[in-house]
Design a protein around this nucleic acid. Structure first.
Length: 503
DNA sequence: AAAAAAT
């Protein structure tokens, strides 16, 4: 572990950002790998790939920071496979092949996805890979491990189970990757991670990849790396420029109506709706479903089978909305996802960057809408600081012209029976919004003193970051409103043409 | 204020 000796600063990697995009086939890669890359349809490298691959091929430790959706998985898996091929020894019997590369990920779904990618790039080689994670039967994983694998992809808890059951031996591991490294190094994961690393040889190549690296994590990460090369593209902690970010000032009661309004207004085919709690995700998914939107939920209280099914249905376009906790915030690659909603502002600013990184991937455009209530001001300031951007809140007022307690009956038979539902109060957000007339206003800042002084409620020792920024800049920041261009239209009756009959 | 990861 780290001693008191000062940690070496990572060396800067050569800046090749100005060079034209390099093709994969200019790399010194085995034809088997080049063929797999070509099969995948990739021709040129993304900036993180162009920078990281040659360095990984040299055998150096790497700390890689790049925007979400820019191909970090390929950036480490392709060169690692190349290095493994170089030393391949086909004369050893398969049963004696030890695990040579270990990839750790913070969620089961992400581990699964990384494993798919590794398999794809390794398909023409005889390197075998397997993924192990919790929530599913250990036996097939055990059988695969005992048959022998070169590349093991895992979540920490289940891997420790397999280690303790002696299903795998990690004392021959030559390469370790921490995907979403800042999460793997955070307090919740660190003990497991340290135990796992204690089983590995010290002489190895270690790679850390993430879209966000806080200074503290960067420092901590140094103690797991040897003479690391810091590979950064653009600025770390940055969001993709192709993502349109909107921040809308709302009350809790109006959140759902705003989501549905924007889905309709922008004709969004699909969206992920992020919430902060598992229970909240389950509840919100049910109400959206009741409103006729095809919805799936993804959170840690669901069985692993349900989790995979939800994600799969969403990826295949069988559901329109995925209501998820931060289990879905990181790394998940969902092709052509047009929008992400932050129904709740995330507790960690880093997770904001990761959440909205689910859209606008691979250069596509995306929309990220964050619903901000008065109690979110502090979290918003953290986000503003992290992404180094001034955030303007849009006002969007939603009004009702329908009695408050009226709601759509669930089915025909229930229509005549007006019975109160147990455990559930009718929600104000069940109201329709007014179909016509001026429904949107941009109040003068003084109309809502809160956003002028967002921190009054919480006593703080030091002035919040945004205050300094504001003082330094004549332009208004978080406290300024911008006028929405469009007025809020009626939302109820919003139904996807593809929506199946419910019930 | 929570979530994730082992059962």
């Amino acid at each position: 572990m780290s001693e008191n000796a000062p940690l070496p600063e990572p060396q800067a990697s050569p800046d090749i950002e100005t060079a034209p995009p390099a093709r994969f086939d200019t790399l010194p890669l085995d034809p088997k790998l080049l063929r797999a890359v070509a099969d995948s349809g990739y021709l040129t490298m993304t900036p993180i790939q162009a920078k990281a691959i040659p360095i990984v091929l040299e055998g150096k430790d790497v700390m890689g920071a790049a925007q979400t959706g820019t191909g970090k998985t390929a950036a480490f898996s392709i060169p690692l496979l190349q290095r493994m091929l170089k030393h391949e020894n086909p004369s050893v019997s398969p049963a004696r092949h030890p695990v040579r590369a270990l990839v750790l990920a913070p969620t089961r779904e992400l581990a699964d996805q990384v494993a798919e990618n590794v398999k794809k790039y390794a398909k023409h080689t005889n390197l075998r890979s397997v993924v192990v994670f919790g929530g599913i039967d250990m036996k097939p994983q055990t059988a695969a491990l005992k048959a022998g694998v070169e590349v093991l992809i895992a979540t920490p808890g289940r891997l420790l189970d397999h280690i303790e059951a002696k299903n795998c031996v990690l004392n021959q591991v030559e390469y370790v990757v921490l995907d979403e490294a800042d999460r793997m190094l955070d307090i919740g994961f660190l003990p497991d991670l340290q135990r796992i690393l204690s089983y590995l040889p010290k002489a190895r190549q270690t790679l850390l990849f993430s879209a966000t690296f806080s200074p503290e994590i960067k420092r901590l990460a140094q103690s797991y790396l040897q003479d690391p090369i810091l590979v950064e593209t653009a600025r770390p902690n940055q969001t993709a420029s192709t993502v349109e970010q909107r921040f809308i000032s709302v009350t809790d009661d109006d959140k759902r109506a705003v989501v549905k309004h924007l889905i309709k207004e922008r004709s969004l085919a699909q969206a992920i709706v992020f919430v902060n709690s598992k229970l909240g995700a389950a509840r919100l998914a049910r109400t959206f479903e009741r409103d006729g939107l095809r919805t799936a939920a993804l959170h840690g209280d669901k069985s692993q089978d349900e989790r995979l099914k939800s994600l799969d249905a969403f990826k295949r376009g069988e559901v329109d909305l995925l209501v998820a906790t931060d289990v879905a915030a990181r790394g998940l690659d969902i092709a052509d996802l047009p929008a992400v909603f932050n129904f709740d502002v995330p507790f960690n600013a880093e997770d904001y960057v990761h959440r909205i990184g689910r859209t606008g991937r691979a250069g596509a455009s995306g929309l990220a809408v964050t619903l901000v209530t008065k109690s979110d001001a502090r979290l918003m300031a953290d986000i503003e600081k992290l992404i180094k951007r001034k955030i303007d809140l849009e006002a969007m007022e939603i009004e009702s012209d329908r009695p408050r307690f009226e709601r759509r009956p669930r089915d025909e038979s229930a229509e005549s029976i007006e019975r109160p539902e147990r455990f559930e109060r009718p929600e104000r957000s069940e109201r329709p919004v007014r179909a016509s007339g001026p429904t949107v206003r941009a109040p003068a800042p003084s109309a809502d003193p809160f956003f002028n002084k967002p921190y009054e409620s919480s006593a703080r020792d030091e002035p919040p970051a945004w205050e300094k920024a504001k003082a330094a800049s004549p332009v208004k920041g978080l406290s300024s409103y911008i006028k929405p261009k469009k007025q809020v239209a009626a939302l109820f009756g919003v139904k996807k043409p593809t929506a199946p009959a419910e019930g």
